[in-house]
Structure formats: C-alpha cells, structure tokens
Write a protein that binds this DNA or RNA. Structure first.
Length: 930
DNA sequence: GAGGTCACG
DNA sequence: GACGTACGTGACCTCG
C-alpha cells in the first residue's frame, strides 16, 4: 500500500444535480432518463484518462437526515424533492462508478461534503495534494493548503483566487462569511439583510465572526449594528451548519482509494447497457477510426483544450536562489547562455512601465530552477526579514549595485543566440530599455496563449499557471497587500520577494515549453511568428515615444467647457423647477418622465428610465428644451472629464508627453486596445470634440502625419466573401456607398438623392456587423419591414454575401471559432447557445474574419514600417494606432518622402482581390492631419 | 462594483 | 408571433 501523493475526491452528489440541470435530457431505449449518467460517465472517462492522481473516490450523500438537522431542524427542509427524471439516475451513477472500478463512498448520517472534508484533511496530513472535483461553494472552505477544487463541467480549477472572487475572502474565512450571509437554498439563516458583499467586508475588517460579533457595537451603520447584535446567535448556528466536519469517523479508509486497474469489460458493458453509442465506439474502436465524442456541454466544447484536470508534471524539486554576489550572477548568466533560453521577469515599483523603477530581475533556466537578483530593496526590510527568519545566518546579504547587475545582464539580453522569454514581455522591454538594455530575441507566453486560445479565457500568468500547470502561484497581493495598505515591491522582504519573483520566471519558462509546443499542432505558428511576436517590440517603441499634447490649450478648453456646463446646468434646473444632479440618469429620468410627464419614456432592462442620447434626441425633436440642454451638457461633461482634464493629468513629467498603453492580448478579434489613457477614442465626430483632437501636436519643426485605410473592412468583405459586384466597384475606385446605392436601388449615381447613399452606407456597415433588419431599421430610423426590403435587395444584387454569412456561422458552430485570412482564430463562445445569445454569436462569427482580418493587415504594416523608415534614413516615428489609422511624427523636411513610404507599406501589407487604399494627411495637429 | 452613458473604429 | 439585436473597445459618473 503506497502513501497517497495526489488524491481525487469526486463530489458525486453535487455532480448529479449539476449534470442533470446542465445537460439536455436524453433517455435510454427503455425510457429511463440518463442525461446525468451520461455526463458523469464522460466526465469520469476524461478525468481518469488525464489525471496523475494515485487515489480516487467518488463520494455521495447517504441520507437526508444528518447531524445538522439536530442543530437546526429547518436545515435543507425547503429543498424540493428530486425531480422525477433524476430519481432513477442515482443508482445508475453508483453503478457507473463501480464500472470504472472506483470506490463509491457514502456514510449514513453524513453529507458527502463532510466525508470529503474528512478525507481531504487526512490526505493533507499525509503530505498529499488533494483535488476536489466539484463546483459546490460549500466546499470552497477547504481550498488551500494543498487542496484545490476543479469544476468538472467547466473544466476550470477553483483555487484560492476563485474563492476570493466568489466570496470576497480567502478560503479560511469562507465559513465566517457564509455564517453571516446564510444560504437560502439550504435554509441556512445567516443574518437578515447581509449578503456576500457586506459579509466579506465585515469579516475582512474584523478578522473573523467571533471578533465581529464581540465588537458589533462599534459598527457605524445603525441598522447593520442592530441586526448583527440581535441576530448574533443566528450567525453562530449558521456557522455550525456551514462548517464542514473534518473528523467524521470514516468507515472506508483513505488507503482503499488507491487507484485500481481499470476493468474495460465492466465499463464497456455498462456503457452498452445505457445505450451510449458514441462512448461504446470510443471504448471499442481504434484511434484512427474513433468517431468524435460529442462533448457533454456545447458551451465547453467550443473552448480550447485545457490541461487543468491533468496538471503537467511538476518539477521534482524547486530551487530558487537569491543572487547577491557577482560570482553567483556570473554563474546564472553563463547557465542561461549555455541553455540558449531564459525566462526573464522584472519587478518594479509600479504598473506604469514608463515611470516604474527597476527593483529586481528574475531568471529561470529550467523547470523549478530560478533566481532573483534584487537591485533596489529598502535596506531595513531587506535585513530584517532574513534575520528574523534565520537569526543564525551570516551577515545579511548586500544587494548588488544596480549598475553592476545591468552590465552583467547586458550581453545576455542582447545575445542573439539566447531566447528571452517573458510573460507580457512588452512591460519588461520598457523597464530594461529604459535601463539602457536591448532585449532580443524574445518570446512572450501571454501572446502565445492569446494566439492559441483567443479571448476564450484570460492570459494572466496566475490564470495560465492554474489552467495549464495546475499550480497556484503566489499572488502579488500576498506579498504586497492590496488597497491602501499596498506596498511597492522594493519594500518586500527579500525572502518573500525571492519566492514570488523567482516563481514568476519559473512558471513563465514552464508555460513557454507547453504553449510553444502547441503552436505547430494547432497551426498557429504563422500568426504568432509573423504578427504577434514582432509586434511586441514595435508597440513598446510606440508607447515609449508617446505624443505631445498642448496642455495650455486643454486647460483652456476645460475652463470653457466647465463654464458652459454651469450655464446649462442653471437652465436645466430652472426648466425642471428645482435643482438635481444632472449627471445622474436616475434623477434625470424622474424629472423627465415623472415630474414633467414627457411622453414616450422607456425603461432599461433594470427598470430605470432610459435617458440615453437617442431617447433625449427624440424628446428634443419634439421641442422640449430640457433634453436638448442636457444633451449639450453631457457632451461637454464627457469632453471635459474624459479628455481635457484626464489627458493633462496623464502627461509624463519626464517626457512631457502622454504615453498610452496598448493591450496586445485582450480583444476577441485581434485588434489592439488602448488605455491609460485610451488614445483610440479621441473625439472627431463633432466640432467641439475636434478641439480636443487639435490639442495633439508635434514638436516644433515636425508635423503629425495620419494615414488611414479607406474602407478596409468593406474591402475585406468583398475579398473574403468573393462579392464580384463589390470587388469591381473597388477596382473602379469610385464612391463605394454611392455605387452600392446605385446597384441596390437601381438609380444612376449622377444626381442621386443623398439619402439613398446614406442608406446604402448603413447597409454596408450592417453587412460588416452581421446585418439584421432590426439593427438597420434602428440605425436608419425606418420600419423593420422597410429595412428587410433593403437587405433583400442587397442580397439579390450581391448574392455571395449570403453564402459567406452561412459559411461563417457553420465554421463557428463546427469549431467554436472562425478564422481570418491570416489564420488568426476568433473564438465565438455563444454560437451554440440556445437563447438570444446565439444571435450575438452568429453576428460575431460574421464580423470576426472581417474585423480580425483588418487587424491582421494593419499589424503587418506596423511591423514593417519602423524598419523601412529607418532604412530610408528618416527620423519619422510611429506614435499611435487607431484600428485602421497610424499616426506619425515627421520632420517637416521629410513630409513628402514619409507620405509616400507609409502609403506604399500600408497598401502593400496584404494582397487582396481588391486594392488597399491609404489616405494620408499632415498638419500641425492630429485634427489638422485629417 | 454594476449599470448607464458615450467617446472611437 | 414574441424575443431582443447591429461588431469591437475603455473611461467616467452615480448609487446601493
């Protein structure tokens, strides 16, 4: 009998209920419902196939009556009886468990949760890891300390982080929170009026339930104080109900869960009896002829594979070294050079890569082997913690001087034969570049993950470590705290800093091995190598350039807008007959639709009065003064706070310019996004707004040059969908919307009614978005029927578009994603949903290759441009990207050459059946360059 | 922290 | 016949 190293405890009862409600109904030939049995069987097959567990058991509830009913008779008393179709499935699932040759465990008087808690506690005491296969929130109190949960239907790990997401507190405080907020499904009373949010806040503040109840009198909010004081006993009873029993006198010993040999005949027979044909084929058939197994749940089938249920083998040992001597640093550099690959991560004083200071660098050269090289830790803490942790240690280490470390790292970072792997390496590039180091070549695990799995999940390192390695990383908040009490990394004691920073490099290297390996198999090499990887360096350079804003002009605008807002506010209050907060949609709705009783008020989906621009415009059109004033006020408020004020505040004091941050791995379609500040939504559509844009200016002696793709998305539609009529129109180089109008409505272009062109333009946009009669009607202010007539006319004239839309939807349904011309995957998670979500999915599937293809094309141009500019001996610099536009700062003497160069490179970024056309303008401001 | 609103492509 | 819709983002404000 071996000691357990990894124990899987499957919450059988919990799984039954979730599978029953989550899976479509299916019945055996004899009419017995078996949907939960089917879900359970496929889950177990997958689990046993993929897990490295050496002990496995499925735990069930035995009976309804448990010790909890004695404490509180109402416990679980309002549970409805199990649905009729579920009842016969209970014994079948126990039978299935035996067919897998896995112990099915239950014990009279105890809930499955208590048995799980007990076995988990025993296993941890023996030094084993435990994975609880369940998504039941009542089990979350067990997470941590070697215990993890796994949501079997979503294939997602539930670690401390997910528990915090759910309860707002770490696992060890979950019981306290549940005691306060109660649970209506189980009839756990809790304290009335306190939900999870409040409970988490109280527990976080007071530490635990007992302290909170003891000090309840101190609570400021009078109502909350009173309920807590009167219901203290209810909270204590609730605690007894929710706290799991970890010392059940179990009958089945943990050792008996040791994984047994599978019994294929047994399983095959069971599966055949239930009529699971696909599973029978899978068990009987060879690999090549094996039919596709339908996944139990459509929503998850669209998601990419995950290793979460089968954590990759962790390294045998973890060796993290704190580097404080030149000799040791030399050894690490030599080791990395020999290895030809090194994961690198920088720790800094902040999130803003252009202001944060370098605190330390971590390197990893092999799984489990990493170091941390501090260069700026405040001496007091640095010594204190080491002395505390080991009073007998020799002299506290002296940190190597920053310059020494940088000089030692310089050749490694620049060595063309050593691959530097980072996670979101753009950040580290900024830090190291600012320290004077060049870094090449690079790989980025965040971008690898994005290319492989799209936006189907996040790409943060913590999430990837959990998902792919089954590893819970040390969280930044664990070492630095959070909120007001957060400290900067240079104040973290060195031992903690080592554990955190070295782990990051270690995980990065391990993720790299895993993800890079998937690239080829999943046909994503080209997208990664030709688009995303080279872009990281390019975008870093753009961010670092920043752009100059005319702050006196913005300050003046802020004043002007503020003054006009004050005037408008006075008018609005007078019109309303009293003062109110004009920025509050709730108060405004009341004024308009209740006090003034204006007609046509609609509610939003949450029951508030809708006061959006379209609603106010409608009212203004009827001659009401207040809505008209309010529209003006809103426009000014937006311009003032989001642009005039925020931009000035974002000026970097060192460079006197604003530096946006582009995210390379967030959008579903492959576009970039921009934040802090967002420079991709600077106003342009109104005259007032353009005053903001006019405050983006070049340095003296330069101009701003703006180059934008003309109609790139519609050109992609023409190309991708193979629409001959549209292609020809583009080749002819004429006004595309006018031509569309002419062809759809059958009128000559000469002397065309402008409203026809406007309608054609809206239809063209609609096509890009996955047209619907409703959407088009909304956009044009016409009836659904009329819109449908237009669409039919369009389809009749350009029939290929219909085929394209069907193809896109089918591709999405089959694969869970659509692809762009350049092979990027755009995931469409809701495409197989049942309700209205599917319609969204379908439109997203249609739009994906278009928006994503355009994103690919401009990325190709961006990657080529800086090199071409440099090769031309030009001093022009690429500053901004706004989806179909690039903005450059160009010396006046180079305007003509740069215009030609940019146009040539952008137009040549892809070869389509239609020409790509780029329009270039220059001027003394971004506004003037258009 | 969610919802409403609005800036952009 | 009803439902509830244009695709993709990020920032600011209010309010419970």
């Amino acid at each position: 009998m071996s000691t357990p190293r990894h124990v899987y405890l499957v919450d059988g009862s919990g799984f039954i209920f979730r599978a029953f409600h989550g899976l479509p109904m299916m019945t055996r030939a004899d009419g017995t419902p078996v949907n939960a049995v089917y879900g359970f069987t496929t889950m177990m097959m997958k689990l046993l196939n993929e897990t490295d567990a050496d002990h496995v058991a499925v735990i069930f509830d035995a009976a309804r009556k448990t010790f909890r009913s004695d404490i509180y008779p109402a416990y679980k008393a309002n549970r409805p009886p199990a649905p009729e179709e579920l009842v016969p499935q209970f014994p079948l699932i126990r039978e299935a468990t035996r067919a897998f040759n896995v112990p099915a465990v239950e014990q009279e008087g105890f809930e499955a949760d208590d048995l799980i808690a007990t076995y988990a506690t025993q296993a941890v005491a023996l030094g084993a890891r435990v994975t609880i296969v369940s998504s039941d929130k009542d089990l979350m109190q067990l997470v941590g300390d070697g215990v993890e949960m796994m949501d079997p239907l979503k294939g997602r790990a539930i670690a401390a982080e997910q528990v915090v997401e759910k309860f707002g507190v770490p696992p060890d405080k979950v019981v306290d929170v549940q005691s306060l907020c109660g649970d209506s499904t189980d009839n756990v009373p809790g304290v009335p009026g306190i939900g999870i949010k409040t409970a988490a806040q109280l527990i976080t503040e007071y530490g635990d339930l007992d302290t909170l109840l003891a000090r309840a009198a101190e609570i400021k909010q009078p109502k909350r104080r009173e309920t807590l004081m009167t219901n203290a006993d209810m909270a204590r009873v609730s605690r007894e109900l929710v706290r799991l029993k970890r010392d059940v006198p179990v009958v089945e010993p943990l050792e008996s869960f040791a994984k047994r040999q599978p019994a294929p005949e047994l399983l095959a027979e069971f599966v055949r009896e239930q009529g699971f044909k696909s599973l029978s084929a899978r068990l009987g058939g060879g690999g090549a002829t094996m039919p596709k197994i339908p996944a139990p749940k459509s929503a998850t089938s669209a998601l990419p594979p995950t290793a979460a249920m089968a954590p990759a083998a962790a390294p045998d040992k973890i060796e993290y070294e704190l580097v404080t001597s030149v000799a040791s640093l030399d050894a690490w550099v030599a080791e990395a050079t020999r290895a030809g690959i090194v994961a690198i991560d920088t720790e800094t004083t902040g999130l803003d890569a252009l202001r944060a200071e370098l605190v330390g660098v971590s390197l990893s050269t092999a799984p489990g082997r990493a170091c941390y090289i501090p260069v700026k830790h405040s001496p007091a803490e640095a010594q204190g913690s080491l002395l505390l942790s080991d009073p007998g240690a020799p002299e506290s280490p002296k940190i190597l001087p920053r310059d020494v470390v940088l000089e030692k790292l310089r050749p490694l970072c620049a060595d063309p034969s050593v691959l530097k792997v980072g996670h979101n390496i753009k950040y580290d590039l900024h830090i190291l570049n600012r320290a004077g180091l060049e870094v090449a070549p690079i790989d980025d695990t965040m971008l690898l993950s994005y290319v492989l799995d799209g936006a189907s999940h996040g790409h943060g390192m913590d999430e990837l470590a959990q998902r792919h390695l089954g590893h819970s990383t040390i969280k930044f908040a664990d070492v630095c705290g959070s909120g007001k009490a957060q400290i900067t990394f240079d104040r973290v004691p060195l031992d903690k800093a080592l554990a955190y920073a070295a782990e990051d490099a270690d995980i990065t290297l391990r993720l790299h091995a895993l993800l890079k390996g998937r690239l080829l198999a999943e046909h994503m090499v080209t997208v990664y190598e030709t688009l995303e990887r080279p872009l990281a360096t390019i975008v870093a350079a753009m961010e670092r350039e920043g752009i100059k804003v005319d702050s006196p002009a913005l300050l003046a605008l802020s004043e002007e807008f503020g003054a006009r807002m004050a005037e408008l506010e006075k008018d609005i209050h007078a019109l309303a007959g009293h003062e109110f907060n004009v920025a509050s949609p709730a108060q405004l709705g009341k004024v308009l639709f209740e006090e003034m009783a204006l007609p046509g008020g609609k509610k939003t989906k949450t029951g508030q009065w809708a006061t959006g621009a379209d609603a106010l415009e409608e009212l203004a059109l009827q001659g009401h003064a207040l809505p008209a004033r309010l529209l003006d006020w809103r426009q000014l408020a937006k311009l003032k706070s989001t642009y005039a004020d925020a931009l000035v505040a974002q000026i970097n004091p060192d460079t006197r310019r604003v530096h946006t941050s582009y995210s390379l791995a967030v959008t579903t379609t492959g576009r970039l996004s921009s934040s802090d500040p967002n420079l991709q939504n600077i106003p342009i559509r109104t005259e007032e707004g353009r005053k903001i844009r006019a405050a983006f200016v070049p340095e003296p002696g330069n101009v701003l040059l703006s180059a934008d793709y003309s109609q790139i998305e519609l050109r992609l539609v023409a190309h991708v969908a193979g629409i001959e009529g549209l292609k020809q129109a583009f080749r002819d180089g004429a006004d595309i919307h006018a031509i569309t109008a002419s062809q759809v409505f059958g009128v000559p272009i000469e002397g065309m009614d402008p409203s026809l062109r406007r309608r054609a333009k809206a239809i063209n946009f609609g096509v890009i978005y996955g047209i619907s009669a409703f959407g088009l009607a909304q956009q044009l202010g016409i009836s659904n029927g009329e819109a449908k007539t237009f669409i039919d006319a369009y389809f009749a004239r350009f029939p290929e578009i219909r085929d394209y839309m069907e193809r896109a939807k089918q591709e999405a349904r089959d694969n869970g994603f659509v692809t762009t011309l350049f092979g990027r995957k755009v995931y469409v998670p809701d495409i197989n949903a049942k309700g209205p979500l599917r319609a969204f999915g379908e439109r997203a599937a249609i739009n994906g290759p278009i928006q994503g293809g355009a994103a690919d094309i401009i990325k190709r141009a961006m990657i080529r441009l800086p090199g071409e500019i440099a090769a031309a001996g030009s001093k022009a610099r690429m500053l901004l990207q706004v989806h179909d536009e690039l903005v450059f700062e160009v010396p006046e003497a180079e305007i003509a050459d740069t215009t030609a160069l940019v146009k040539r490179v952008m137009e040549g970024a892809a070869q389509l059946d239609v020409p790509l056309v780029v329009e270039v303008g220059t001027g003394a401001s971004w506004d003037a360059a258009h």
